[in-house]
């Protein structure tokens, strides 16, 4: 009993890491399967990051669409990140976070565009930000935000 109390710090820490690993990886698995399913559904909807030129009268409406996603790191990934930051190298633990945020943001933007009846999105842009004011401070969990925005257009199909 005394041993447990003496090492309470360590036990809490290990518990948080285990919780972070179990919860974090199950959330990631579910998110990825949702992303893949929705990407497949929206496969036919065109998105491009090129500035597009259309012939006169071809475009009906043009409007801004945007989608953003915020993904938080978990305690396990944070530990991996801290350890990695000592020796350097690719922070593999964070790569999937940014990837998920990016794809989720684009998916949401596409959903918005499709909901408004657009035929395609041109001029797609992505921006990222770390949020949680103290993202890089000690003891705080940071999150990454990705916002995707572009010009949705409807085409006069005649």
């Amino acid at each position: 009993m005394e041993t447990i109390l003496n090492n309470l710090n360590l036990i809490v820490f290990v518990g948080l890491v285990a919780l972070g690993y179990v919860a974090g990886s199950s959330a990631e698995r579910r998110h990825y399967s949702s992303i893949i399913r929705r990407e497949r559904e929206q496969l036919k909807f065109q998105v491009m990051n090129a500035e597009a030129y259309f012939s006169e009268g071809r475009v009906g409406r043009a409007f801004l669409v945007s989608g953003s996603a915020v993904i938080s790191i978990d305690y396990f990934k944070r530990l991996l990140g801290i350890l990695r930051s000592i020796v350097g190298g690719r922070v593999k633990a964070y790569e999937s976070l940014v990837d998920r945020a990016r794809r989720e943001a684009i998916l949401r933007m596409k959903e918005q565009a499709m909901g408004k009846g657009a035929h395609m999105v041109v001029n797609l842009r992505l921006e990222t930000a770390t949020i949680g004011n103290a993202a890089n401070q000690k003891g705080r969990l940071g999150s990454v935000e990705v916002i995707a925005y572009g010009t949705a257009i409807t085409l006069n199909l005649s």
């Binding site: 690993y21 990886s25 990934k77 991996l80 350890l83 990695r84 000592i86 593999k92 633990a93």
Partner: peptide, 8 residues
């Protein structure tokens, strides 16, 4: 990730 943790 657990393999990476073990290495680090």
């Amino acid at each position: 990730p657990l393999v990476e943790l073990a290495w680090l």
